[in-house]
Design a protein around this nucleic acid. Sequence first.
DNA 1: AATGAATGAGAATTCATTCAT
DNA 2: TATGAATGAATTCTCATTCAT
Lengths: 214, 214, 214, 214
Amino acid sequence: MPKKLTEEQLTGIIDTGIREFADLGYENANTNVIAKKAGVSVGYLFKTYGDKQGFFVACLEKSLLALSEAISACDTAGKTPGEKARALIRTTIDFSRTHDDYIRMYYEITAMRDGKLSKEMADRIEGLSAEAYRAVIEKGQQEGLIRTDIPATKAAFLFDNIMMMLQFAFAGDYYKERYRVYTGLEPDDPAGDEILIDEVMAFLRGALGVGGLH
Amino acid sequence: MPKKLTEEQLTGIIDTGIREFADLGYENANTNVIAKKAGVSVGYLFKTYGDKQGFFVACLEKSLLALSEAISACDTAGKTPGEKARALIRTTIDFSRTHDDYIRMYYEITAMRDGKLSKEMADRIEGLSAEAYRAVIEKGQQEGLIRTDIPATKAAFLFDNIMMMLQFAFAGDYYKERYRVYTGLEPDDPAGDEILIDEVMAFLRGALGVGGLH
Amino acid sequence: MPKKLTEEQLTGIIDTGIREFADLGYENANTNVIAKKAGVSVGYLFKTYGDKQGFFVACLEKSLLALSEAISACDTAGKTPGEKARALIRTTIDFSRTHDDYIRMYYEITAMRDGKLSKEMADRIEGLSAEAYRAVIEKGQQEGLIRTDIPATKAAFLFDNIMMMLQFAFAGDYYKERYRVYTGLEPDDPAGDEILIDEVMAFLRGALGVGGLH
Amino acid sequence: MPKKLTEEQLTGIIDTGIREFADLGYENANTNVIAKKAGVSVGYLFKTYGDKQGFFVACLEKSLLALSEAISACDTAGKTPGEKARALIRTTIDFSRTHDDYIRMYYEITAMRDGKLSKEMADRIEGLSAEAYRAVIEKGQQEGLIRTDIPATKAAFLFDNIMMMLQFAFAGDYYKERYRVYTGLEPDDPAGDEILIDEVMAFLRGALGVGGLH
DNA sequence: AATGAATGAGAATTCATTCAT
DNA sequence: TATGAATGAATTCTCATTCAT
């Protein structure tokens, strides 16, 4: 007996999906369980999203949107590249810690074997930040704040490498332990964040800056 | 009718397992298929390794051994930290390109949800390099070659972040595409390697060095 | 928001149903798809026809009506039994070729497992032709045109056997191929029809006639 | 816990499959139910026959084999065409009555929508009898026993039409009722068989014979 | 020791049917 | 009256694992 789904149920499916996919991985997540947990019928799930992968992609979209919104929200207007980077790093770490589900979803795509989907997602997701980073770096180079012997694209790549690893560091058992092993810090405890950020900034300043990244 | 397994069959199971796990991922790899491809019975596989995960761990061991051997083989004796890093980076990139199976196996562990196993593996795998990197960096710091405002452990962490991402860059559809998007280079083509290595070195020298990492 | 259904929609459901049932078979035909294709809601379909089988029966009715109309339209007034048979055969073959949907619907009933419905439909459908054939044959027998050593009912049965198989011969992959295998003719090509009809008539004349069926 | 299947179980699956497919039709037959009824695991069924259709085809093979064996067993050596036909008809009717499962399986193929499989099966099944009938008829024609104005291939087709319809007449609710409607006889009661056979023979003698088919 | 036939729980997906609007 | 979003039981197929040989 069909009953109009509440707004909460509608968004709930995706949220439940994100949680399940993040917790169990794509293969181990169970569409029947997700539907039940979300208080919705399997039929609805499949009618709406076509198949499991379609539903996964929908969950992904939301995760990525949340991630990009968090990053957009971090105001960088009128800042120096160094200030921008610092803001970005702080936002990234905060977000990774509070929304590790989203990060694990992101991680899930990078592990996918569906070549076509992998490429498509990589283009969409990485395309945005690649361009954003490049633009900032290029401007920094023109202003003489960033070294020019590393092309902006490569510099963006190396910067994003650091960012990705920081994201992963707080999501997933393996990366958390790796963080412990390397830093001796407890990943779930934000106490050391400030120091970490300072160190990352020092690292980046040296890596990319001209006489220190401002 | 039991027949003593040949040496080739014995190692073949693991190699086949690595290939299958790397290609399909843990969940999609099929123990029956692996046994058949390796010319061995499923019964043997399970009797020897207990269960699928036990077999996976065995495959992992070999992958990691190969990885660590490759890194050990890269002679760094008597070199400056900078020369060591360069040698390591070159080895890492070469290895990732030629043995992407092993890298994908490594990636597979980082994605595992079995908290206990994840931790255990992280301790074993990352423990080694964490210590090795730390030692080199500390020595570099004492020799005045490496900046001291970033503690050796954190510096090791940031260095390893770069190394990990370089490994992934050449294994798996998503990371390959990401590499394309960022650098404009074709990941499967080694042509641009030298330049990339130079740029990474420039980056690291600035990031970690004192007046340039030697 | 309910909208009065147009006449076209109303008959369209049945026509669409016939097409789908004929093409896919009862089980594979999908009520949701039929409704959508017919531009009508599933709700309407079920409210009007009760359930899938009820709808199927409605589609059947129309198919059978079309079939019996085609046969009624074939004027046999004042003809000899032989002429009547020839007219009937020609009509049957033509109809089967142009309206294979209807034939396949007919075939669909003969395959049904619902004992009660099967019986009911057999009574209705076969009852009509059984009686018609019997009457013609009996009259022919009285006129000395048809052999009397086969009772009219059995003669009607044997005649209808031929008619049924001719209907099937042009509808459905299996029967089409069987037709090819036996006759070497292409079932979709009407070129050989005249000859076939002559041969069927020769067969029937001998089978039923007295000194040749007139 | 795997247990070697008994010979009985092995053949039982197919027999159970035949019963279920015959009783319920291809779509309504349930692989889980079949396996359970046969005392075998679903896994075995699918491992052995690939998929539901593969299993169905296997059931079909057995049905057809039984059918063709019954026909082969009916000795026609040294008989006139008329005697051969009579023997064939009797065998067909007996078989259809006692093994209606096999006939319904046969019927099931003729209803299939898988064009390729339909063609393939039609070639295999009808090819055999088409050739056998043609040969007998041709020989009869050469001996002056069978009319020559109907080509042997077409005569074979018309003869097989009768045979098919006789098979169906005793299998399936629709055809049984049709038989009742036309003949007034009870299809499940063999009492009227002799008379029916005489009448069919009279029909065929006239249809195909020269001065009566001997 | 080694085999591999056999198992059966589990998972994705479908679709006839309902009923609030 | 007509709608169509929502339902969930049912069905095919997979694959890690077992154990008699």
